[in-house]
Design a binder for these strands. Structure first.
Lengths: 135, 135
DNA sequence: TGTAATTCCTACTAATTAAATAGGGTAATA
DNA sequence: TATTACCCTATTTAATTAGTAGGAATTACA
């Protein structure tokens, strides 16, 4: 299941991308327009800022705004920071690899084999989808 | 993340498929050979039996055995019964559809759009992978 | 007919995670 | 001076996952 964190994050990004200008948008507005708990959204936007797709401006008239063109914001980056690994098992993860402790040999493991395929197909999508494609 | 239930289920099926004969194999053997808690595996095999890929025989000399050729056991069926929906959000699920309560319009929802693609690609894999392919 | 081996079934528990909620304060800016 | 982002901690609630416990029912075989 996709976490609400990721879901809300994507919605917020899309909301910003749809705006014509790139002026700061206060969290309150984004939250209200997308039915998201404001406090929860706060922490999500903070994560997105740290990955470099968003920036923020403090004080009156402040808020969050995109610092990249929507066409340059890849889903791989967004998903990885909000949802975590794209792979469904750590033993096929590119960025979060971990060996299974119950599995003697990855080479002959059926789960490994299947999940590798699934990861590749998901990766193919995320790599070739930008925020612009979702508007 | 893939649940252990699915992981263990796949391993058990593979273990059975690898055997030359189709004689009943006791849970204990499957559990031991694959580092799975026997009691836990018990409930997993029961689910797989209900979907029609396995059958069982009680009593001494009993156990579980495949009743379909590995080449005819589709991952779609296995995954759906063990893991649940293939889609990452209910609003793009074929078999477990549910409307999002926070989302006014699926047609314009970015999350919907993205997750539809991801579901399709996963489905493509699961539909074209049989147990035989994993051996 | 008895016994050991096995599946079958129900219920319980423990640990973890998700999704908030609450509340405080600091810093920047129009 | 009011507004707003930023940052931190703690708590709660609900759900899910993974596993445990115990026993009933069935069967092969001596």
């Amino acid at each position: 299941m996709l976490s609400k964190k990721t879901k809300y994050g994507l919605k917020a990004l899309t909301y910003l991308a749809k705006k014509e200008d790139r002026n700061p948008v206060p969290i309150g507005e984004i939250a209200q327009q997308n039915n998201i708990s404001q406090k929860f959204l706060e922490s999500i936007l903070l994560m997105l800022r740290r990955t470099g797709v968003l920036s923020s401006k403090k004080g009156k008239g402040g808020g969050y705004y995109l610092i990249k063109e929507p066409a340059e914001i890849l889903m791989t980056d967004v998903i990885r920071v909000l949802e975590g690994p794209i792979a469904m098992v750590p033993c096929v993860s590119l960025n979060f690899y971990e060996k299974c402790d119950d599995c003697p040999d990855e080479g002959t493991c059926s789960v490994h084999k299947l999940m590798l395929k699934v990861r590749d197909s998901a990766l193919e999508i995320y790599r070739n989808t930008t925020l612009k494609d979702l508007i």
